[in-house]
Computed example of a mutant assay.
Amino acid sequence: MPSISIPVLVLWGDKDPFTPLDGPVGKYFSSLPSKLSNVKLIVLEGVGHCPHDDKPELVHEKLLS
């Protein structure tokens, strides 16, 4: 991730059972916005591992803004 210079939007479901925010992968991605100015993390409430399947309207709202 540090070598990526384009804007990165990370959408993460707070109910993800496979890669929870408090797990090692989640902690890594949660830390990125404070280290890299091009990374933005949005945690989606009530969403699991596949936000685009669970709540496509919410994902679209975040992507299109």
Rank of each mutant, 00 (worst) to 15 (best):
L64H: 14
V39G: 04
E45S: 02
D14T: 09
P56M: 04
W12P: 03
V59W: 07
S5F: 05
V10G: 13
V25T: 08
L63K: 10
P7H: 07
G26H: 01
L63E: 12
L11I: 13
K40Y: 03
P51Y: 07
L11V: 12
G23K: 01
L63I: 15
S65I: 12
I6P: 06
D53V: 15
S34T: 13
H60G: 10
H60F: 15
S30H: 01
E45P: 04
F18S: 11
L32S: 05
G13S: 12
D22F: 01
E61S: 14
H52Q: 15
K15P: 05
L64I: 15
L63A: 13
P17G: 06
V43Y: 06
D53Y: 14
L41P: 14
K35E: 09
K27D: 06
V43D: 11
H60T: 15
L41I: 12
G26M: 02
L58D: 03
L9E: 03
V39R: 11
T19E: 06
P56Q: 04
L36R: 03
T19K: 02
L11A: 05
L9F: 05
P51C: 10
S5H: 01
S30C: 06
P33T: 07
V8H: 02
I4N: 00
P7N: 11
E61H: 13
N38M: 07
D22N: 00
L64F: 15
L41A: 10
P20Y: 01
K15E: 12
L21R: 08
V59G: 09
P56F: 11
L21G: 15
P17C: 04
L11M: 14
E57N: 10
P17V: 03
E61L: 13
P24I: 07
S65Y: 09
G23C: 08
P17T: 03
P2F: 08
G26F: 00
V47M: 08
H52R: 07
K40M: 07
L64V: 15
P51N: 05
K40S: 11
L11P: 14
P7R: 01
P20R: 06
V39S: 04
L11W: 12
V47W: 09
S3K: 09
P33D: 04
P56Y: 10
N38R: 09
V25K: 05
H52F: 12
